[in-house]
Amino acid sequence: MFGWLALIVGLYFLAGWVGSSIPANREFTESADGVEIIVGTNGVHTTIAMPLRNADMDWTRIFPPSDTANPWRNYTHVAIGWGERAVFLNTPTWGDLSPLTVLRVVSMGGDALYHVEHWVRPAPSPDFRTIRISRAQYRKLVRALLRDLPERTPTRAVYPGYTDQDVFYDARGTYTTYKTCNEWTGQTLRMAGIRTGAWTPFAGSVMKWVPPFDPAYVPDGAPDRVPGK
């Protein structure tokens, strides 16, 4: 039994490596004068960050800083990630992750949430890398990010985050071993026309397609700090 289990796990990782090695949107090139986004990772989970406001989108209309416990900071960026509800809400640290939760998610899947963080002048780093995309691609990215957000109502639920600068919202979709949080990131990038893997179930599956961090690069605006959790 353990041998078969090891084989299944090994095949899953192999399939993830193969799927993420097949390029989607291979003709993509960075735009010289477009919108700078950030693809970030904590080693397990990935997120997409964008300017809080620009000519194409004002994210404060969708994710107002007033939903956070610290709405008074001069936020410049919003970071959006998608994941499994129980994992997001009940595991502020990886040490809090229950084996039973992992087993349930792997075997049955789970409802989804959006994790939304507000950042102030995030500084690029090896784990938070920039991509400059065209405005047309950015508008596609916005539409892709909004696709899993339920229609907003006056009583939309807001769940406290890990810090005073992040919160959770209900999201459409079901987390599965196929559609993981990182495959959601990859799918979102693919829908915007950005080059990434055809299937990206792991954080590394996403990040291997993002241009490496250049310490000499100066991002838009004055960098403040590397984003937190």
Score class of each variant (00 low, 15 high):
Met1Phe: 03
Gly3Ile: 07
Trp4Ile: 09
Leu7Met: 03
Ile8Tyr: 02
Gly10His: 00
Leu11His: 01
Tyr12Ser: 01
Leu14Met: 00
Gly16Gln: 01
Val18Asn: 00
Val18Lys: 01
Gly19Tyr: 05
Ser21Tyr: 04
Ile22Lys: 02
Ile22Pro: 00
Pro23Gly: 06
Asn25Glu: 02
Glu27Asp: 04
Glu27Ile: 09
Glu27Ala: 08
Ser31Pro: 11
Ala32Phe: 09
Val35Gln: 03
Glu36Met: 12
Glu36Thr: 12
Ile37Lys: 12
Ile37Leu: 15
Ile38Glu: 11
Val39Ala: 05
Thr41Ile: 09
Asn42Ser: 09
Gly43Asn: 09
Ile48Gly: 02
Ile48Asn: 08
Ala49His: 12
Arg53Glu: 12
Asn54Glu: 11
Asn54Lys: 13
Ala55Lys: 15
Asp56Tyr: 12
Asp58Cys: 06
Arg61Ala: 12
Arg61Ser: 06
Pro65Val: 02
Ser66Pro: 04
Ser66Val: 12
Ser66His: 10
Asn70Lys: 06
Tyr75Asn: 02
Val78Lys: 03
Val78Asp: 03
Ile80Val: 13
Ile80Arg: 01
Gly83Val: 08
Glu84His: 10
Arg85Gln: 13
Asn90Arg: 15
Asp96Ser: 15
Leu97Arg: 07
Pro99His: 13
Val102Asp: 02
Leu103Asp: 08
Val105Met: 15
Val106Leu: 15
Tyr114Val: 13
His115Tyr: 13
His115Ala: 14
Val116Gln: 10
Val116Ala: 03
His118Phe: 11
Val120Gln: 09
Arg121Met: 11
Pro122Phe: 09
Pro122Ile: 00
Arg132Asn: 05
Arg132Glu: 11
Ser134Trp: 10
Ser134Arg: 06
Gln137Glu: 14
Gln137Ala: 13
Lys140Ile: 00
Val142Phe: 05
Arg143Gln: 15
Leu145Phe: 07
Arg147Met: 07
Pro150His: 12
Glu151Ile: 08
Arg152Met: 02
Pro154Asp: 11
Thr155Ile: 06
Arg156Val: 13
Tyr159Gln: 11
Pro160Leu: 04
Thr163Met: 10
Asp164Gln: 14
Asp164Arg: 14
Val167Trp: 00
Arg172Gly: 15
Thr174Ala: 05
Tyr175Val: 06
Thr176Val: 06
Thr176Ile: 09
Thr177Tyr: 07
Lys179Tyr: 06
Thr180Asp: 10
Cys181Lys: 03
Glu183Leu: 01
Gly186Tyr: 03
Gly186Ala: 04
Ile194Gln: 01
Ala198Lys: 10
Pro201Met: 09
Phe202Gly: 03
Ser205Ile: 05
Val206Pro: 08
Val206Gly: 10
Trp209Asp: 06
Trp209Glu: 06
Pro211Ile: 05
Pro212Leu: 14
Asp214Met: 10
Ala216Asp: 10
Tyr217Met: 14
Pro219Lys: 13
Asp220Glu: 09
Ala222Leu: 12
Pro223Lys: 04
Pro223Phe: 03
Asp224Gln: 09
Arg225Asn: 05
Pro227Gln: 05
Pro227Ile: 08
